[in-house]
Amino acid sequence: MSLPLSEVMRIAALARIAVSEAEAEAVRGQLNGIFAMIARMNAVDTTGVEPMAHVRDVTLRLREDIVTEADRHAAFQAIAPQVEDGLYLVPKVIE
């Protein structure tokens, strides 16, 4: 498998990482090497094997429906890039 440049650009956009075409071209070679290594997975037939998403067969604990968190927005917003009136500011969201 060899990733075309357009595919590298598409993934980068999906991942919200700015790349120039030159950067994409450079990273393309590395990605192709990585995917060639990953392709070794195809050596084994996994038909009928149950995928393993979690290490152990544990069940989920559920929390009682109780409010336990206090307002800490002042502390949280002290490390925010841009806030005003308690709101996080971002470039205009267009819907």
């Binding site: 997975m41 149950e50 995928p51 393993m52 998403a53």
Partner: peptide, 14 residues
Amino acid sequence: AYYLKAQKIRRLIA
């Protein structure tokens, strides 16, 4: 082809 396959191999390794 990738994620699911890798999870199956994960099972085999375990």
